[in-house]
Nucleic acid binder design. Structure first.
Length: 568
RNA sequence: CGGGGUGUGGCGCAGCCCGGUAGCGCACCUGCUUUGGGAGCAGGGGGUCGGAGGUUCAAAUCCUCUCACCCCGACCA
């Protein structure tokens, strides 16, 4: 590739609408351009990165017996009605009608199509197991696209599906995918954790997520600091054991707390540690109605945990609903005498607490769960760093992460409604046991940028870099330098090194800045040193190690530098 | 969907509060000089200020509505 004839629109300044590091750099380096909120054009260099990732995905999926197929982006409503998701999914699904008025939708994922296909083509246990995968565009009308390419409304996904005769076989398919995913992310040069995750509306028997640590991430995970333990889970799921506070020897009594609303104000007024208080939050569930959720004063309620405990999605009650249900304003409510079901966080089992008195301007102190109010104990609070690991007691870390892959044990959630059945050895009809597995190539790219860049720009891992070598031709008007650069360019390609030749009529500084910004692993400079001594400089983008060599030595020098990288 | 913010040449911004008919840097074009970390000088092209309506002698600037985009939260199959 010659820069003089290529579309690589680099930007000197950060784009105004980009916040996340990877977003800024991917736009500045000319990898992508935004067409609409959450809708991106991939320019030549961005496309090459995606192609590199896809090639790795294909190799590793094929290696575990995956068969590539392509399923449609546009789906008839019927299959989604059969699985129940036509109604279960809200505004996130793009829906449309064809010219005859038939309901259609754009595929957000392809479990339904796989089950439809399996229902038609799989008949016998002899046809199982199967691994089908595709690298295909997904359409999701995200409520809030964000962080550049990290959360978009249209994106390419490698999604694979396993079909097995029973859950035992599913476990093997699942394990094969987990191993393949580890190889994929290792090859892509990412740092990541594998964590337990909430299967959510996907349903099923269990799931894990592959999480790349980055401040741009949208998820948080809790991981045990003891490597031997290995406990790691999405905070939606993670449990931690907080250290209990020291309770004063107080007896139960009502105390006036005029005008206070928040835990901080209550604690300040009474001169106590906020950890001695209970935060009482009224939620309204669609079926169960109002419920009171309790967490320790210094903890945050995790709404997904509450939703899981209730089996439905609750919403916070409005202030007037709180007054109606409990007879007191938001700042003074508590579980004692509350005429609604009470769910209390596990951390509240023991202790004498300060709670709202359900009487405006008053709190109760010395209140004990079970004695002073009835409740169901469940895990409700969001894990904070430093809490004890539920398995081994070691402190937990909490990290912000980008979800780069997920694996789900679906079970028969889709095969039963879509009638994907097979006959077993005994001639009995049984539902196929499915699994589904996703990876977002754009998220891999963005994670690599997040994890690898420095102050000068992107630093691509070799395996997914759009090119391997960036040749800076300093003296674009010096025939000898041009000839040398051309020779190096040709030699690189001949030897399997993908090279860019910066042959533009630009000043050297411009080319050096661009080379750094683009993050191509190795830079070759043909300039003064060549004109004077016949020497070119071969430099590693990541380590900045430089090798001076003759033109003939460039390919070897590139290989030497590559060998010195941690993730070659 | 709730909260906050921004829309002015290709990009990044100023001007808006205190209406008077658009400016800066970069980029772009021409010429000369320059050529190892985003060059200098000179000359030049390009925008009626997101859109619609209104107030006014006069609107980028004031009012109303609307659209788009960004950030926080909710949601995330």
């Amino acid at each position: 590739m010659r820069r003089s004839r290529s579309l690589v629109p680099t930007l000197r300044e950060d784009p105004a609408d980009a916040e996340a590091l990877s977003h800024r750099l991917m736009v500045r380096a000319g990898l992508v351009r935004q067409l609409a909120a959450g809708v991106y054009v991939y320019l030549p260099l961005g496309q090459r990165v995606l192609d590199k990732v896809s090639a790795i995905l294909r190799e590793e999926m094929n290696a575990i017996g995956g068969q590539e197929i392509t399923m449609p982006v546009i789906h008839p409503a019927e299959i989604w009605r059969e699985s129940g998701r036509w109604d279960a999914i809200g505004g996130e699904m793009f829906r449309l009608k064809d010219r005859y008025g038939r309901d259609m939708c754009l595929g957000m994922t392809h479990e339904e199509v796989v089950a439809w296909l399996a229902a038609r083509e799989i008949r016998s246990y002899r046809d199982l197991p199967q691994i089908w995968y595709q690298i295909q565009t997904k359409e999701r009308d995200e409520a809030r696209p964000r962080s550049g390419v990290l959360r978009t409304r249209e994106f390419v996904m490698k999604d694979s599906y396993t079909l097995d005769p029973d859950t035992e076989a599913l476990e093997r398919s699942y394990a094969a995918h987990e191993a393949a995913y580890r190889r994929i992310f290792d090859r892509c040069g990412l740092r990541y954790h594998v964590v337990q995750s909430d299967p959510g509306m996907m349903g099923g028997l269990g799931s894990h997520e592959f999480m790349a640590p980055s401040p741009a991430g949208e998820d948080e995970i809790a991981i045990c600091r003891s490597p031997a333990c290995g406990y790691a889970a999405n905070v939606e799921l993670a449990t931690g054991v907080p250290a209990p506070p020291a309770f004063p020897a107080w007896t139960r009594e009502e105390v006036p707390t005029p005008g206070v609303r928040t835990i901080a104000e209550v604690a300040a007024l009474l001169g106590i540690d906020p950890r001695l208080t209970i935060k009482s939050l009224l939620y309204v569930a669609p079926k169960a109605g109002p419920v009171l959720a309790l967490v320790r004063g210094d903890h945050a309620l995790h709404e997904r945990k509450l939703a899981r405990a209730l089996g439905e999605e609750p919403r916070p009650a409005h202030p007037d609903e709180v007054r109606e249900a409990l007879g007191a304003p938001v700042g003074s409510v508590g579980p004692v005498g509350a005429p609604v079901p009470v769910l209390a966080d596990e951390a509240l089992r023991a202790g004498a607490w300060v709670v709202g008195a359900n009487r405006e301007g008053f709190h109760l102190r010395g209140v004990a769960a079970g004695r002073d109010f009835e409740c169901r104990f469940v895990d409700l609070h969001t894990v904070a760093a430093g809490e004890a690991c539920p398995r081994c007691g070691t402190p937990l870390d909490v990290e912000r992460v980008i979800e780069i892959g997920n694996i789900f044990k679906l079970g028969t959630k889709y095969s039963v409604p879509l009638k994907a059945m097979y006959l077993d050895e005994a001639g009995h009809e049984r539902p196929i046991v499915m699994g589904s597995y996703g990876i977002g190539p754009a998220r891999i790219a963005a994670s690599a940028v997040e994890q690898g860049s420095d102050a000068d720009g992107i630093v691509w891992p070799w395996a997914i870099a759009p090119y391997h070598v960036y040749i800076v031709l300093v003296g674009a008007k010096d025939a000898a330098q041009v000839a040398a650069a051309e020779a190096i360019y040709a030699a690189c390609w001949r030897q399997g090194l993908e090279a860019i030749l910066d042959d533009r009529d630009e000043r050297p500084g411009v080319k050096f800045k661009d080379a750094d910004l683009l993050g191509i692993p190795v830079r070759v400079t043909v300039g003064n040193a060549f004109a004077k001594e016949g020497v070119v400089e071969v430099r590693c983008r990541r380590t900045r190690q430089e090798i001076r060599t003759s033109c003939d030595g460039v390919v070897d020098a590139v290989r030497t530098l590559r060998a010195g990288l941690a993730t070659p």
